[in-house]
Simulated assay, not measured.
Amino acid sequence: MTTPLRTPTRRLPAGGVHNLRDVGGYPAAGLTTKWGKLFRSDSLHGIDPAGRAELADLGLALVLDLRESDERASAPNALDGVGHRDVHLPVYRDGIGSRGATHTAQTLDLGGIYTWMLSEHGGALTDAVRLIAGSGSEPVLVHCTAGKDRTGLVIALTLAAVGVEDRDIAADYSLSEVMLAGEWVDAMTAVMAARGLPAEIDIAQIVASSPAPLMLATLASLRASHGDVRGYLRAHGMTDTELDDLRACLVG
């Protein structure tokens, strides 16, 4: 019996998950990114049995977890039975609690956080893109806690490297604000507020916002400093062969 083809869908509803979606269908230098190949999400600790079955049906082979070790320990992914390979790649290299926390508190807004991640943690971000490039035809899911910031930069770098236009990358990024609104944002805002952050920090912006102009400015900054996003990835160890592999696996 022939398995019916899945209708391409951007948003993939799953109980206990708020920001799970497919990044297929974006124009990329005359072709499009493949549906059913690369997914992005918030954390998967609360996913329900139907959601796990959905991921298994997608043939999900690799889950790339960008969270720090303490985040994984407090909210381990509930993906038993999916049949995937799990790779833990903490963007901050488990160093956010000491020097990293002090550094980001000085400029704790999304623009400052992204600038810091790209300048101080470009190796980890690039390693994530390299893992996607090496995945061949296997479906890959990238996630962090919200699926908005760390995941947002990895997905943006990936899409830009294969020729997706900035406006489409920014539009994809901005969807997180819509998908996280409500229950998830309310709960995370309460968690952040309980940490006693300085009054001048805009918690709502950090937790809930994913403005397209910020992503456009971030991509423009990388272009100004490295020529283009591929130049940024090369500067952090990615080879031309790996960049070619990324396009081959993601675009068709």
Rank of each mutant, 00 (worst) to 15 (best):
T3L: 12
L5E: 12
T7A: 13
R10S: 08
P13W: 00
A14K: 00
N19R: 03
L20H: 05
R21T: 00
R21L: 00
V23N: 01
G24Q: 02
G24F: 02
P27V: 00
K34G: 01
K34Q: 13
K34M: 07
K37R: 15
F39N: 05
A50V: 10
G59Q: 12
L60E: 10
A61C: 02
A61R: 14
L62F: 14
D65S: 10
E68R: 06
E68M: 01
E68H: 05
S69I: 09
R72S: 03
S74L: 04
L79T: 05
D80P: 04
G81F: 15
G83H: 04
R85Y: 07
R85N: 11
V87L: 15
V91N: 10
V91W: 13
Y92E: 13
G97I: 06
S98T: 06
H103P: 00
Q106E: 15
L110C: 13
G112V: 05
Y114M: 07
W116V: 01
M117W: 11
G123V: 08
A124I: 02
D127R: 08
V129P: 07
L131Y: 02
L131I: 02
L131E: 08
L131D: 01
L131N: 00
A133R: 11
G134Y: 09
V140L: 10
V140M: 10
C144E: 05
C144S: 11
T145H: 14
K148W: 10
T151I: 08
T151F: 11
G152A: 04
L153M: 12
L153G: 04
V154I: 03
V154L: 04
V154H: 09
V154W: 07
V154P: 08
V154A: 03
A156F: 09
T158V: 09
V162S: 04
G163W: 10
V164M: 11
D168V: 01
I169H: 11
L175P: 06
L175A: 10
S176V: 00
S176R: 02
S176C: 02
E177P: 09
M179F: 15
A181P: 01
W184I: 00
W184H: 09
A187M: 03
A187S: 07
M188L: 02
T189N: 06
M192N: 07
M192E: 10
R195K: 14
R195M: 13
G196T: 06
I201V: 15
D202Y: 04
D202C: 05
D202K: 09
I203C: 04
A204E: 13
A204G: 05
A208F: 01
S209P: 00
P213N: 07
L214W: 06
T218Q: 08
L219V: 05
S221R: 15
L222D: 14
R223P: 00
S225D: 15
S225V: 07
G227Y: 15
V229K: 13
G231L: 04
G231F: 07
Y232R: 12
A235F: 13
M238H: 12
M238P: 08
D245C: 08
R247E: 10
A248W: 08
L250N: 09
L250P: 10
V251L: 09
G252P: 02
